[in-house]
């Protein structure tokens, strides 16, 4: 790259970028700050940066049964759905990537097209079905429904990941007498692991953040954390804002834990394209 001189345009560009970077995190940081405030420090016309911090909001959130149940439900529902997605999605993706057949294109399109389905269109009939079977408002119903999401997303992202594994390595393993299955287990999975972990993390974030289906498929027992958090606000402004802010922070933490993994995943996807 040729170095450029410092021009007014460059300074403006840098300022815009810095502002965008600020905008990316500031609203969230402000919410996190508010979760440490007493109500008097939040309900002010002029935003307050200096205040006496309190842990009351966070303690209240952690001490509430509904929040803890929501957290538990979210972890179980997302955990199992992702597990099913891994067990069913990864082998299928490998088969599409490595054993080309006439339908490979159609299969990929089918998997993608599941993402076109409006969530309402899936949630309404499923609600009626689960009600009739007697599984409405249970975690198994949620897990099965989420599996549709996780399997298809993991498949979609894992196909290119498996295709990026150098064919020569697999061929060499075949020559050494490995069977098709052990090539998958011992060669393809470990070599593609980095990208695959990214794909799995992505599917977890997707179902963790899911709202509409959880809202329609649960009424009391199976509510996930996003539903519980949204209900806190329905009690209007009577709920101290600090508590609401604290629940938003709790809800946002798990996906942010994957920030490193997912940005590494992005990098590896584009490095593959380059070569």
């Amino acid at each position: 790259m040729r170095p450029y001189r410092t021009t007014p345009g460059r300074i403006i560009g840098k300022t815009i970028l810095a502002f965008a970077g600020f905008m990316a995190v500031f609203p969230l940081a402000w919410t996190a700050l508010n979760s440490l405030k007493n109500n008097v420090d939040i309900i002010t016309r002029v935003p307050r940066l200096v205040f006496t911090p309190t842990l009351d909001n966070i303690n209240y959130i952690i001490g509430r049964d509904s929040v803890m149940t929501g957290l538990y439900n979210s972890i179980i529902a997302c955990g199992f759905a992702v597990l099913i997605g891994v067990v069913l999605g990864l082998p299928a993706a490998y088969a599409v990537a490595r054993y080309p057949n006439r339908w490979a294109g159609d299969i990929q399109f089918f998997v993608l097209s599941l993402r076109f389905l409006p969530p309402v269109a899936v949630a309404i009939p499923l609600m009626v079905i689960w009600l009739q079977i007697g599984l409405y408002d249970t975690l198994p119903a949620l897990i099965v429904t989420y599996s549709l999401l996780t399997i298809s997303v993991i498949m979609w992202l894992a196909i290119p990941a498996f295709q990026a594994v150098p064919k020569e390595i697999e061929e060499a393993a075949f020559v050494d007498g490995y069977g098709a299955y052990s090539v998958f287990w011992r060669i393809a999975l470990p070599v593609a692991a980095r990208s695959l972990i990214g794909a799995v993390a992505f599917s977890f974030v997707l179902v963790w953040n899911e709202f509409l289906i959880a809202l329609m498929l649960s009424s009391s027992n199976a509510k996930t954390l996003p539903i519980v958090a949204s209900e806190l606000s329905q009690q209007g402004m009577n709920v101290p804002w600090g508590i609401l802010n604290a629940s938003v922070v709790l809800l946002s933490l798990p996906p942010l834990l994957f920030l490193g993994v997912l940005s590494g995943f992005l990098n590896s996807v584009f490095r593959q394209k380059k070569t």
């Binding site: 919410t31 996003p226 809800l251």
Partner: peptide
């Protein structure tokens, strides 16, 4: 720039509602 998209939509909505 990746942080906002990782947030649950519900969280993002609350952050901006405030």
């Amino acid at each position: 720039f990746i942080i906002p998209v990782l947030l649950p939509r519900v969280s993002a909505a609350f952050v901006w509602k405030f």
